[in-house]
Amino acid sequence: MNEIPGDLKFKKSHEWVRVETDGSVTIGISDHAQNLLGDIVFVELPEIGAQMSTEDEVAIVESVKAASDVYSPISGEIIEVNEVLLDNPEIINESPYHEGWFYKLQPSDSEEINELLSPEQYGDICEE
């Protein structure tokens, strides 16, 4: 079980967000989500420079079991993607909150970050 780092914020749809010191945000999927998916074998990441609105499909993650869409929890411009995942998607299973990040984004509306769930709130949802 991977501990939820205290500095993360969550969306109900199992994405996490970390606000970096330069104001950009890093986004990935939760330990709970990777555990539900099982062994991840393929990931499709967004293009750098793409504009995302909240709840746009931003990435696709496929496990041996099924394909799932990842929705952007925050609006803004994609500034970096974790290309290591393309050849080593199993990193998402191994380290969902650290090496397994998906992409970085420059938020266009910082208010959206305040609407996200705390780790405790998200943890409660997962237990339901």
Partner: peptide
């Protein structure tokens, strides 16, 4: 049982 940890 669908898996015992890792299907692969």
């Amino acid at each position: 049982p669908i898996n015992y940890g890792s299907q692969i």
